[in-house]
Computed example of a mutant assay.
Amino acid sequence: MALNLARLLILSSLLIVQFSCKRSKIQKSIAELPKSDISSIDSTSIESKLEDLIINESYFEYLKLKSKIDFQSDNLSQSFPANVHIKKDSVIWISVSVGIEAARCLITQDSIQFLDRINRKYYGLSIPELSEQFNFDFDFSLLQSLLIGNLPFDKKEGDRVILNSLYTSLFQQARNIKIENQIDNVNHKLNTILAEDLGGKSKLGISYSDFVEEISGDLVPHAIFAKIDVFRGEQVKTSTLDFKHTKFEFSDNELRFPYTIPKSYQKGVIVF
């Protein structure tokens, strides 16, 4: 149970994102990631200029989230509540409590650490080790962007923009990852990410919905759907996450990120 929760919490930190399309649509899209050539675009679509693309993003120093997370995989189904604190470009902190705190996770620029308070164990992975486990080139900036619904990577020269009737696609390649970002043509929010690791072949699909305007004026997604297909030789392991946010609070006031490994805890090993 505890090791499963460790896996879930690390997966959650990777896949905290929002659900904006119908689930059947995103499942199909993830299975058939867009090609990088213009011939893959619908005949009614047109190429547009990068400088004309408007994206409504959130800017903050600190962010506090409350969520219910539902996880599904080939051999596991589980739900749990989570509190999330973020310091921009620095730290992501996740706590799971059911009456008492059961687990805590800390993500920094170079590592992911986990405390299992029930079984008094701790776990740790570097970001490169995590990327190797999933055959997907993760980094902190990507994880942070997924959490807040902003672009995973900044726009840059060479990106391609395709205008469709309902959304605009921004095609990018960063490091070893090929991405299609779909931006709604009405509210200009990122609503879908389809990504593929060109080396490991693993695929990540993210979709955002239930957008709510906060007191700060930011339009943010309060519902989540994410799916990752991990390729290991001829085998594909699929996991999905559903999130329902009950709190999405931007702040300029400093948040706490407490994480200390008690001396009595033993080190554990996580293999996905």
Rank of each mutant, 00 (worst) to 15 (best):
A2G: 11
L3W: 07
L3G: 02
L5R: 12
R7G: 10
L8P: 00
S12F: 03
L14W: 01
S20G: 15
C21T: 13
R23F: 01
S24Y: 02
S24M: 07
E32F: 02
E32M: 06
P34N: 03
K35Y: 06
K35V: 07
S36Y: 03
S36G: 10
S39Y: 04
D42Y: 06
T44C: 06
K49L: 05
E51W: 00
L53C: 11
N56W: 04
N56K: 11
E57L: 03
Y59A: 14
F60R: 05
E61Y: 00
Y62P: 02
K66H: 04
S67E: 12
K68S: 08
N75T: 14
N75H: 09
S77I: 14
Q78N: 08
Q78M: 12
S79M: 07
A82F: 01
H85V: 11
H85P: 01
K87N: 05
D89I: 02
V91E: 08
I92S: 02
I92C: 06
I92P: 02
I94M: 12
I94L: 13
V96P: 03
V96M: 08
S97Q: 13
A103C: 11
R104E: 15
R104G: 00
Q109P: 00
S111I: 01
Q113R: 15
L115G: 07
R117S: 13
Y122F: 14
G124A: 04
G124Y: 09
G124R: 10
L125F: 08
S126F: 13
S126W: 00
I127N: 13
L130N: 01
S131W: 09
S131H: 01
S131M: 04
Q133D: 15
F134C: 11
F136G: 07
D137M: 00
D137Y: 01
S141M: 08
L143V: 10
I148M: 01
G149W: 06
F153D: 09
K155A: 02
K155N: 05
K156T: 06
G158C: 02
G158R: 01
D159F: 02
L163A: 15
S165E: 14
S165W: 00
T168D: 05
T168Q: 08
T168A: 07
L170K: 06
L170P: 06
F171H: 07
R175L: 10
N176T: 14
N176Q: 09
I177H: 09
I179H: 05
N181Q: 06
N181T: 03
N181D: 10
D184N: 15
L190P: 10
L190H: 03
N191T: 07
I193T: 12
I193Y: 04
E196V: 15
D197S: 02
L198E: 09
S202W: 01
S202C: 06
K203C: 08
S209Y: 14
D210V: 06
F211W: 12
V212T: 11
E213V: 11
I215T: 12
D218N: 15
V220I: 14
P221H: 13
P221N: 15
K227P: 00
K227Q: 15
I228A: 01
D229C: 11
V230G: 03
R232D: 13
K237E: 11
S239K: 11
D242V: 12
K244C: 04
T246C: 10
E249D: 12
F250H: 11
D252L: 06
N253D: 15
L255G: 09
F257D: 13
P258H: 05
T260S: 09
S264L: 13
Y265Q: 11
K267P: 10
G268K: 13
V271K: 14
